[in-house]
Design a protein around this nucleic acid. Sequence first.
DNA 1: CCACAAGGGTTGCGGCAGCATTGCGGAGCT
DNA 2: AGCTCCGCAATGCTGCCGCAACCCTTGTGG
Lengths: 223, 223
Amino acid sequence: MRILLIEDERELAEALSAALGKHGIVTDHTMHLADAVELTRQNHYDAILLDRRLPDGEGLSFIPELRRTGKHTPIIVLTARNEPKERVEGLDLGADDYLGKPFLVEELMARLRAVLRRAPDLAELQIAAGRMVIDPLHLSVTVGTVPLDLPRRELLVLAALARRKEKTVLRSTLEAAVYNYEEEIQSNALDAHISRLRKRLIDAGAGVAIHNIRGVGYLMKEE
Amino acid sequence: MRILLIEDERELAEALSAALGKHGIVTDHTMHLADAVELTRQNHYDAILLDRRLPDGEGLSFIPELRRTGKHTPIIVLTARNEPKERVEGLDLGADDYLGKPFLVEELMARLRAVLRRAPDLAELQIAAGRMVIDPLHLSVTVGTVPLDLPRRELLVLAALARRKEKTVLRSTLEAAVYNYEEEIQSNALDAHISRLRKRLIDAGAGVAIHNIRGVGYLMKEE
DNA sequence: CCACAAGGGTTGCGGCAGCATTGCGGAGCT
DNA sequence: AGCTCCGCAATGCTGCCGCAACCCTTGTGG
């Protein structure tokens, strides 16, 4: 799960990014509308969090701009401008939700889950693979009826592979699923996650196997 | 998939070439505009990556020069000159995209996919042949619903043949599809790849056969 | 019809790049 | 304080792929 955060208060952005990270969400952050348009062209986001007052303009103007490119990514507006009239304005412009600052991260998470539930094509709510059911929104994996708790990064890898099971997933795609563009990675950290994940999947009898495609990426197969 | 990289910083060029190689892209590299014109006359490229500041002039001047020869190859400008005004300049001259340095390889790949998507004649997104579907951008092959994982080089050969199935593909064309001009080849390595590929295609029941045209090249036929 | 040459097919070998595994230590959480 | 997560790096291993040897096929000339 990966979202774009458009927000000019650095502190809030960092706090949010950390909080979302704990929920298994990878966050890309920008302070400028201009960059935001670019980023949505380059990356796939499952949702977008949008501030209204931004240094280079009114955040709401971003919404029609994005829709014009044919994307239906859910957008949640986060703003101090929380008068009823302003809410209507935002939602009429195509925002999927509107949340006044200050807010609780828990509330944001709930609303995030809600809008994603309404857009099931973009981000599956549950992924089945082998004897597993993966729920990336609630960060849970169950094998049969037994819950399997995985570390955050391993879960992200698992979800990315399971989402495209029986198909190769490029190494770079996996890296994008686990790390945002600020997190540098200079080692075989991804391989290490794969390794540990494999062991856990075997221990749990998950009914899937992760194969390597040399020079390309990885592939999850059901057994 | 083969691209031309026009870039005078050797280190960057090598790093890029290596990174693109991992995505199954063969890169030719030159540091001089004069050579670039020559190369585009001799080879087919699916895209061109162009630096602006080059030892023998402004890279942008290459764009109209190329277009004048009737080629519509997508061009992505890579440059440190990343002011909005300069972006407009590049795009107005006919560049298909404009990317400021420094950049992430992932971003470049995404933009590359985007420009190729817009130019579907030049590089199909999926190729069907026999019971196979080949996706050269994602480096995957499936036979029916079963994924078939091939080594990188064999996959490049397969894609080059399938792209022109039922037509002879010159030996030199195949070599160009798999090797860049820095990679010397002094043996029958290509034949070896063909041989191994044939075996795998039979094992997988791919529904195609690779025939040789003596002294000319190879030909893929559906069964 | 045979001899010979040249191009192609196949296969084992070896070097090496990429991958797997695992212990370590810092960081963060409870 | 004790735990887990996770990046890092050292180590060993795997399999890709260039190479070359050897065999087979095709074509040509006598």
